[in-house]
Amino acid sequence: MVVTFNRAVRTLRRSGTRDAGERFIQLILLVCAVSSIFAIFLIIVFVFSQGVPFLAEAGLGFLTTSVWLPADSFAAGTWGIFPIILGSLIVTLGAVAIGAPLGIACAVFLAEIAPPAVRRLLVPSVSALAGVPSVVYGFFALLVIVPWIRGQFGGFGTSILACWIILSVMILPTIISVSTDAVRAVPREYKEGSLAMGATRWQTIRSVLIPAASSGIMASVILGMGRAIGETMAVLLVAGNSVTIPGSIFAPVSTLTATIALEMGYATGAHQQALFAMGVVLFVFILILTGLANLASRRRVTF
């Protein structure tokens, strides 16, 4: 009896220390989680506290008018960011329109068609693409793509088209990796069931695999879109940053992120607040995108 009791106590003690260890780990994880939420919260509060008063004062005209002349040494400011909002939307949507089909096709190829040797070569290449700093993309585009566009189509070369090309490449890794996972997560049985009925490989991909992976693919596209709208450095270098409503895809354009990055270093007073207000606008855009992404990935897999 005594021996059994002692053993039980020992077991309890051991599990007691184990529990303490568990609790400690849990505490650390909790602190990590809370601090990241706290950081996000701080950023939101700061951006909104700086930007919202300006938005309230400048009113809807801030979003809908087209003359952007921040307060400088010479005159009071004129605030209209419509061309910048438009620029961000055109650049983002265009980049996604080019990048998404490419990325999805590449993902299907990687997940379904590529022989293992090719896959072993391609997967690290895609990861490497994701690791290239955006300023390097921008510089490459400035030295290669911009002169090419200038030579082919005239104008400045720094243009919507240059942004589309470089951004569509930059969002590829996101779209490819998330979509590849989505396609590979489709149960093997679906594919076998389709092939066993005499469907061709392409019919199987088109009618079964892609629809079954559609929520993941949609999420990848929206993540890519988030990356495109948030990208700053590469766009700054190749956009031309002209605050006008662009007349063609060869015209220079400015985006929310690039304008903030370009002017924040100098901005004081109302100009600075206006840039924060642009940050609020950008934040709302990204919030909408994240919401859509969550919606897409939660959607039941029926089609």
């Binding site: 010479f74 005159a75 700054l236 002209s242 220079p252 370009l262």
Partner: peptide
């Protein structure tokens, strides 16, 4: 002389 730039050009950083 304090006037405004045309918006036709591009901006480099």
């Amino acid at each position: 002389k304090g006037g405004n730039f045309s918006t036709g050009g591009i901006t480099q950083s």
